[in-house]
Every structure is written in C-alpha cells, then in structure tokens.
Design a protein around this nucleic acid. Structure first.
Lengths: 348, 348
DNA sequence: AGGTTGATTGTTAGCGCTCACAACAGCGTG
DNA sequence: CACGCTGTTGTGAGCGCTAACAATCAACCT
C-alpha cells in the first residue's frame, strides 16, 4: 500500500535471484538455456520468473553482448503491392530468426533520404540492413555510403559489390514475350516503367532479347511511371496506332511492364473501341490480386515476394553471423500466369 | 598496421573525451545540447566526434535512461493497400518524433499471434504499440492482454478502454448511400465485408441508417471477404436478381464495402450483360490507386491513411510522454470520390 | 586413500552511458 | 573583502546484464 515513488520499476534479474534463492548468474543461465543447471534449480528460477513477471532487459543485454539483434529495412513506395509484400516476407523471416525488424519508408528516391535512413538505423544499433532499392540512383548512393554493417539489396541489380536478391525480371519478360509470339503475334509492343528503375530495364531487356532472337525488329518503346494513368496515356497512343493501321508495325500484342499500367492500357483500348484480346492482346507483370478480375483477366508474371523477403534475410543473417562466403547474388524464379487477356481468339 | 585483435571496437565517449581533451561528461553534454557548454569546448568536441566517427551507443543510453525510444506496430494483412499505407504514415510520423518503429505482421488473425507479437515487441523494450486491429477478435484479445505499455488501436472500434484512431467508416458509408439515393435510385443493395471486421459492420450500419432514415426497407445484405473473387460471386448473384426482375427490390444500385470486391462485382455484371452505370450503379470504398481505371471508373470513399498514421503516433507518444489526458478516440473524415460508375445516365 | 574430473553454483568486473553532485572560476553586491 | 550566484567542467556511482573465473561438492579412477 505504501507507494512513495510512483515509478515501480520492473523486476531485475537480481530480484528473481532473491526470490528463487540463487545467484543472478544462475538466473541468467536458466534464461540462456545453459545445460549445467540442476533441474530442480531451473524449476525454482522459472517459477520465480513467472511469479514476478520478469522480463530480460534487452538494453542491458545488448550493452554487454554488443548484439542488438535488430535489423533495419529501407524501402521506397511501401504502399505498393510489391514492396509491401516483400516487407511482410522480410519481417516474418527475421522474426523467425530471432531478430527485430525496424522499417524506414522513403518517400522520394533521392540519395540524401537514403543516407539519412541508414543514419537513423545506425544510431539505433542495427546489425544489418536490407535495402529495397529498385532505382539505379539508390543503389549508387548505397554503394558510396559504406555503412558500418552488412547491407543486402533487394532488386538492386547485380553489378555492385553488395550482396542481393532479385526476381529474375529478365526471365519473366522473356516468358511473357515468348508466350505472345507463340500465340501467333508477329510482333510485341512494350510499355516500359520509368527509366531509372532497374526492374524497367531488365523487363525491357528481356522483351527485346526475345524479339531479336526471333529476328523481329522491336518497335519503339513507350514509357510510363508504373501508375495506371501513365498506362492509360500509353494505351491511347497504342489505340491510335492500332486503328490507323499504317506505320511499320501493327499493334496486336502489348507487354506492359506492370499490372497497374496494364489496367490503364486496357481502359484506353476499350475506349478506343478495340477488343482485348480479340484485336490486341495485353500482358502485365506482378500479378497483383486485382489482375485476375481486370477486363479481361490479365496474363501476367507472378513474383514470389515472400521468397524474396526470406532469402534476403537469410543472406543478411549469414553475413552478420559470419557465415557469409563472398558477395552473393540470388535470383528468384518468376511464374507466368496465363489468363484471358492473351488468349488466342478466332478473330485475327 | 599492428592488428592483434580483429574486432576493432567502435569509439566510445571516453575516446572522444580523450581526443578533445575534456571529460566524458562534457561530451555527453554536447551530444544532448546542454546549454552550459562553452562554444569553444563544444567545437572541440564536435571536431573530435567527427574525427573518430563516433556514434552514441543506444543500448547504453537506453539502459540508464530507461527509454528505448522504440515503438512497435502490429498489423494484419500488411500487403493490402490500406494497412500498407497506414504503416507508411505511422513510420514517418514516428521518425519525425525521434522514435524507431518496429513492425510485426500477423498473417492470420487469431488472438495467439497477437499475444506473441506483443511479447516479441515487449522483449525488445518498446515503449508503446500501435495495433492495427480491424477484427473484433483482435480487439478483444488486445483488451485482455494488459500490456506493460500504452497501446493505441487503429480501426479498433471505440467500445473498449483503449485509445484509438479510426476513419469515420459509418460517415463514409452514409455519404455513398446518400449519393446513390440522390442520383435517383429507389434502393441500394450492399455487398459487405466479412462478419468479424469492425469496418464491415460500420459500413453496413451507415448504409442501413441512411436507408431507414429515408423510409426505405434495406434489402438483404450479401457478404464477401474483401477479395475480388468474393465480389465476383456476389456480383453474379446480383446480376441474376437484376435480370430476373422479380422479387421485392430491383437492383439498380450497389454499395460494395471495398474497391477490390467492387472490381469483382463489376466483372460479374459485365459478364451478365448488365451495363454500369446504365442499368446498375456501383460504388466502392477505399479509393485504391486502380479504382480510377476500373471499367467504369469507380465512385468510392477515400481514406486519408497518412493522417490516420500520424494521429495514432501522436496519441501514442502523448501517452508515453505523460501528456495523455484520458482515453481518447479520434475520427478521421472520409472523402467521397465521385466517378463514372454512379453517374446518372439517360436510360433508367 | 589421494588426486582428478565434471557438474553446479557463486563472485567479480565491466559494457558505455547519464545523473547527481562536487569543484572551481569569475562576477557583482552589501 | 567576504559572500553568494552563475556558468562551466569534472568525478563517481550505477543502470541490468553477461563473461570469465573461482569455489564447492560428489563421483570416479588408479
């Protein structure tokens, strides 16, 4: 009842030790699952811990072990389906390995923000960072940063000296393009993502390669910014070309670099009175949950975001715990999801 | 060149003190912006810090101050647009206030996972938690948990003794329903979200209230699970009802509880040969980025997720830093976004 | 029996920092 | 000129924990 000081401090290891009639070191041993503790003693301590509601102080522990068991994640565009899914995968994998994850979302993508984010995380003593850095400029900034802890990139490309995990974007693009050619199209147009993005580049490269391998001259590339609106604009242009029926390359198939833009393209085509897939086949990339219900259901490339998250945490933890071999680059396989938007129909 | 021990420890405050020719305490004062430090001394110390690349050890600091300046966030369905956006808002707000945010994503929504998540965060010494708990069962579990730190709920309803921030879901539903009635529809059907979700309930309640206030008997509620597929199924049922033209309530307007399901409904109606908005008007909720490009562009309710994030962090920090008045509930205003899917047309 | 081993427990010394307080200078004031 | 005040700096203790070592005891071997 006497309550002189308002702040009742949480119990410490010493409190538990007193309660259990042992030394604080024995309590520590029980908590760390040290083998050499008598079963009866262990029992005593466990009971005392429960009675007092004791919980190990992680700050004190981190201070002496020099391990915070905290990882940082830096991501851009965290509200989008792709990054958000990767984040979830990362977090779960880290938790399984006994790490805490702290996230920093970057709004825009300039280097300064990234530097600040690393600083913010470093000042909290993270042991490593996963950076989701899909833009070339980020990766550049990251490489120049020289952080005092291991850094693993996601979708950061494989040119740099940083370990990283990526989806095999180029393979995904190849799969889509080959699928469209196999369906009988003489050529495939492409709506690409923004220039600075590595994913854009890889998808465009995959598309281009397939065409060139088939002896087909790739048509001019249209560019968007991943948003449905930008896809809509590109779609209007394509619709114009499809209707004009002149110019070198007829528009009968389009590979759009992500599903959101594909949605815009589909709308523009529809408004132009062009039937999909009847007159123009359309394919996307990402397999967002909505894609199956687009008009028409969208052929696209599925990314296993959870696997990407899991593998990057694996890589990072390997580095932190000294198991790291050299700088490694992991590729995750994409999966082609075929739906109505590229279904061959009986009309040309 | 001599490098006997491989682990070169990072510099400590004492190292900086020696380098600058002052005591460690003076270094601490400089770092904490204490006013009573001579400008020249401050300069010396700052220089020494820079020379050594010194960084304050947060574990040691946390140990003595009993403040970790870390917040936890618990969220379900983090890959969806809504939660992901809220998360981003939370994180930015927390960082501005000088806190680190650690996220835990829950896959399924049962109480045990939530308890584990709280435990996980507690063992890292978070000072407070924001729980995005849109399901009734979560909120229940949360209330029974009695965590050793303040907890703020997001979309957790206002029945409980926990402070919380929510969008005014009911108001949003009212706005949509009133909009549809004003457009001349005699009644409005409703495709609701899953039962356990507070957002579903509030949206359904808002819809029902408006109808009843207008003396209209609400038709039977269809239920989905937020997914486009479930919306598609509901849409098929609605299409059947719309075509049959018998039964008490004709189907001319539908308020769907989220945009993803609305996408499914639109597809089903289209497949049933029903024109939107010509024969049936459809409205959604959330304003996902894709909504503007649905066929047709979807009337919906926009949520200011960033504001929700910001305000919940504000509430939480107020509690942590003792500024908290009582248990408070904040409501964020929704915004009706009118698009083609509910545009009155010249046909019935 | 004497010594050695292994299991179990306790003791001590920090980890790097902040807080409380002491020390000291320089200044104005009665 | 003694006193107190303010501004500036230093000293010592201790936050709660783990790691290294010491101590104790029973069991075991030759």
């Amino acid at each position: 009842m006497a309550n002189p000081a308002e702040d009742v401090r949480p119990p410490t290891m010493a409190d538990v030790a007193r309660e259990a009639g042992v030394s604080h070191q024995t309590v520590s041993r029980v908590l760390s699952d040290h083998p050499n503790v008598r079963a009866a003693t262990r029992e005593q301590v466990t009971l005392a811990i429960e009675r007092l509601g004791y919980r190990r102080n992680s700050a004190a522990r981190a201070l002496v072990t020099r391990r915070t068991r905290t990882l940082g994640v830096i991501a851009v565009n965290t509200a989008l389906y792709g990054p958000a899914s990767t984040l979830t995968g990362l977090e779960e994998a880290a938790r399984e390995q006994g790490y805490l994850v702290s996230t920093v979302s970057l709004r825009t993508g300039e280097g300064q923000g990234l530097k600040d984010a690393i600083d913010h995380l470093a000042s909290w003593g993270v042991e490593g960072v996963v950076a989701i850095t899909p833009q070339r400029s980020h990766v550049q900034a990251l490489a120049e940063l020289d952080a005092p802890f291991p850094v693993v990139t996601v979708e950061g490309g494989h040119q740099l000296d940083l370990p990283g995990v990526s989806l095999d974007q180029e393979l995904g693009a190849r799969m889509v393009t080959e699928h469209l050619l196999a369906a009988g199209h003489g050529n495939v147009w492409h709506v690409a993502g923004p220039d600075d993005w590595l994913e854009s580049e890889a998808r465009t490269a995959g598309w281009r390669t397939v065409l060139e391998e088939g002896g087909i001259r790739p048509p001019r590339v249209l560019t968007g910014d991943w948003s449905p609106l930008s896809g809509y604009r590109a779609g209007q242009e394509l619709a114009g070309l499809a209707l004009a029926r002149r110019g070198a390359t007829p528009v009968t198939a389009v590979f759009v670099a992500n599903d959101q833009m594909a949605l815009g393209v589909l709308r523009a085509l529809r408004e132009g009175g062009i039937r999909t897939p009847g007159q123009v086949a359309v394919a996307g990339f990402d397999d967002i949950p909505e894609a199956e219900f687009f008009p028409p259901p969208l052929t696209t490339v599925r990314q296993d975001f959870a696997a990407i998250g899991r593998r990057s945490i694996g890589l990072l933890v390997d580095h932190i715990e000294g198991r790291a071999r050299k700088v490694e680059h992991l590729l995750v396989e994409p999966q082609l999801i075929m739906r109505a938007s590229t279904r061959p129909s009986n009309e040309s």
